[in-house]
Amino acid sequence: MFKDITIGQYVEGNSFIHKMDARVKILLSLFYIIILFLISSPVAYAVFTAFTLFLVYLSKVPPKFILRGLKPMMYILVFTAVLNLFMTQGSTVLWVCPFWSTLKITKEGLTTAVLMILRLVYLVIGTSVLTLTTSPLMLTDGIEKILKPFEIIKVPSHEIAMMMTIAIRFIPTLSEETEKIMKAQMARGADFESGNVLKRAKAMIPLLVPLFISAFRRADDLAVAMDSRCYHGGKNRTRMKQMKMTVRDLWATLFMVGFAAAVIFIQKLM
């Protein structure tokens, strides 16, 4: 069930984007998302699409991987589209339900639906490009560094990063475990698939209880193992992999700013 989630999966590579500094990548990804939510005109979207395709090309990540990340989003996409399609009020009515006239599709609704789908798709693609080209360690390190200044207002930057690292590390382990427990209970006649919502929720108990117990046991073991390797939080800790910003990051930033200016200009103009 976790197999389709591409976030946290890293594809090794040597592309321009792979080589960028994680901090710059994270900040530029945020910037990308902000631009995405500022634009709405078709021409701006066309430019944005071209830019996104260019990013995917630059990352040299097989598009298959990126598309796989969209698969688990399918239901959300369809749901959002349907909701916007029928719920948006507008002046130009395109279609009215012959049985129930409140149900209608307007031109505005159609535009909003398409816009929302594109936004969500680009949101996933943008973050996928970030996570697929940045090793989990670099990603969490980057977040730690970015959050560092906020320590003044008591943001535990190191702890947040460590929690993310461990979460990423344990996703495959726990998903394997889930599958195993599920099969073991199915062998004892458990039924996870039929019945109403209440029955199904109840059927999850034989899966969830062992899973939680196992997760706690693992957490306990891990804490001891970390202790015995002298872990004591972020204080006086060094890192093997140092982050360095290079000219590459400067170019990427300038390019991104230029692109943002262009897109927003187009948006204003059209």
Partner: peptide, 8 residues
């Protein structure tokens, strides 16, 4: 499985 912290 329970003593490895990092993903690499």
């Amino acid at each position: 499985d329970n003593q490895i912290v990092a993903a690499v």
